[in-house]
Amino acid sequence: MTSVAKSAPRHQRFGYRINAVGVAGALVVGFWIVVALAAPAIVPHPIGDIVDTDYFGPISRELWLGSDYLGRDMTSRILMGARYTLGISIASVIIAGVSGVMLGMIAAITGGVVDMVLSRFLDALNSIPSKLFSLVVVAAVGSSIPVLIVTMAVIYIPGAFRFARALAVNINTMDFVVVARIRGESLFYLIRAEILPNIIGPVLVDLGLRFVFIVLLLSGLSFLGLGVKPPYADWGALVRENIGGLPYAAPAVIVPSLAIASLTIAVNLLIDNLPTKIRDRENS
């Protein structure tokens, strides 16, 4: 077997197979995460300052991505925008994911009335159009970052719940869960040890997709003027405030759109090409 081991690819040591497309996606996502974390330290200009005499300025040596409709530096605004877009979306997806998946597993394991009540309640929630729902909430309580996070989490809980419940119902019928049940195990143990480890892969992929939808919903809300309040702006808000530059092909409207596209596409590529575990065990 020595000759085979030698010819085997290098990454085999980790026991995972890695895909080039996945690596590319991970790099782009990683880049935006670093930008979001480091933004205050690396922005060339404070985001509120008007630094250009012209509006919708072109790409130049001083202003790498041109200027916006008030003559503010676009590079700084994009970098800071990453903070809002990523931060709010990640917070929402975590809240939606954790609560949706937990409720889904509880419904699947407990069954009966609990399942019925949870499923119908979340179905009802699901039936409200998401944009309309967020419009009403933001109009009622005003727009702030916590409100945005909670609203978007609530919108995406039913989806996460449905998905996790469907997976958990399948696992729940397996004999090993029956064995654990007649051993007298608690609900918490069943969730933690028997169900969750067996559905975590698809659930993570689903959360990745949901993250993309949340980014788009947040951008959409900001575009409607219901998102982050000025002078701060996430990418969706940047597109909206600079929409007047569209006839001039101003970088101020193109670049934030590209940023949204690059993040969502990269996340999609990453979750479609997550490293797969190599199941083969050499006879060592």
């Binding site: 085979v4 197979r17 190599i278």
Partner: peptide, 8 residues
């Protein structure tokens, strides 16, 4: 057969 680590 080829396994997923490339071993035959």
């Amino acid at each position: 057969a080829t396994t997923d680590s490339g071993r035959t």
